[in-house]
Simulated scan of single mutants.
Amino acid sequence: MSVIYILLAISILVAISFFIAFVVAVKSGQYDDSYTPSVRMLFEDELVKEKPKKLSTNQKTNS
């Protein structure tokens, strides 16, 4: 039974250490994306689909 307590304590310490490492990495800017904004201007904007043109009254009566 004492082995379970030891393993539980070790797993909690490992989890806390990974969480602290994650927080330090986030605060130091490790996950900031500095590459994408510099190349975003090289890509074309998405094409906007045009709405279908409405038929004028003259075209409707001729058909």
Rank of each mutant, 00 (worst) to 15 (best):
residue 44 E to Q: 09
residue 20 I to T: 07
residue 43 F to A: 07
residue 50 E to W: 04
residue 54 K to N: 09
residue 5 Y to A: 14
residue 33 D to T: 03
residue 48 V to M: 05
residue 34 S to Q: 13
residue 48 V to H: 03
residue 54 K to E: 09
residue 41 M to H: 15
residue 13 L to D: 01
residue 28 S to Y: 03
residue 22 F to H: 05
residue 36 T to I: 04
residue 18 F to M: 14
residue 27 K to E: 06
residue 59 Q to A: 01
residue 22 F to M: 05
residue 47 L to W: 07
residue 46 E to W: 10
residue 18 F to R: 11
residue 2 S to A: 13
residue 56 S to K: 05
residue 24 V to F: 07
residue 30 Q to P: 00
residue 3 V to F: 14
residue 61 T to K: 15
residue 16 I to C: 08
residue 9 A to Q: 08
residue 37 P to G: 03
residue 9 A to R: 09
residue 47 L to H: 13
residue 12 I to T: 08
residue 22 F to D: 03
residue 25 A to Q: 04
residue 30 Q to G: 13
residue 52 P to L: 00
residue 20 I to F: 08
residue 56 S to W: 01
residue 27 K to M: 11
residue 41 M to K: 15
residue 52 P to S: 00
residue 32 D to S: 09
residue 3 V to W: 10
residue 37 P to C: 04
residue 40 R to K: 15
residue 23 V to P: 02
residue 41 M to S: 14
residue 29 G to W: 01
residue 51 K to A: 15
residue 29 G to Q: 01
residue 61 T to N: 12
residue 5 Y to I: 05
residue 53 K to R: 14
residue 11 S to V: 05
residue 5 Y to L: 09
residue 5 Y to M: 06
residue 10 I to Q: 06
residue 61 T to D: 07
residue 10 I to T: 13
residue 6 I to S: 13
residue 10 I to D: 05
residue 4 I to P: 03
residue 18 F to D: 12
residue 27 K to I: 10
residue 49 K to R: 08
residue 14 V to Q: 06
residue 27 K to P: 03
residue 29 G to F: 00
residue 9 A to K: 12
residue 15 A to P: 01
residue 45 D to F: 00
residue 5 Y to R: 12
residue 25 A to M: 00
residue 32 D to A: 11
residue 21 A to I: 12
residue 45 D to H: 00
residue 10 I to C: 07
residue 38 S to L: 10
residue 13 L to T: 11
residue 53 K to F: 03
residue 30 Q to M: 15
residue 56 S to F: 01
residue 55 L to P: 02
residue 56 S to C: 05
residue 1 M to C: 14
residue 2 S to E: 00
residue 2 S to K: 07
residue 54 K to W: 05
residue 23 V to T: 05
residue 57 T to N: 13
residue 58 N to E: 09
residue 30 Q to E: 08
residue 17 S to T: 15
residue 53 K to L: 09
residue 16 I to L: 14
residue 4 I to M: 05
residue 29 G to R: 02
residue 31 Y to L: 02
residue 57 T to Q: 08
residue 3 V to G: 15
residue 10 I to H: 06
residue 27 K to N: 15
residue 61 T to W: 09
residue 47 L to S: 14
residue 54 K to L: 13
residue 4 I to T: 10
residue 46 E to K: 15
residue 51 K to Y: 06
residue 51 K to R: 11
residue 49 K to L: 09
residue 38 S to R: 13
residue 6 I to R: 15
residue 55 L to T: 01
residue 30 Q to H: 15
residue 34 S to V: 14
residue 36 T to S: 06
residue 8 L to E: 08
residue 37 P to A: 01
residue 63 S to T: 13
residue 60 K to D: 00
residue 47 L to P: 07
residue 39 V to I: 09
residue 29 G to E: 01
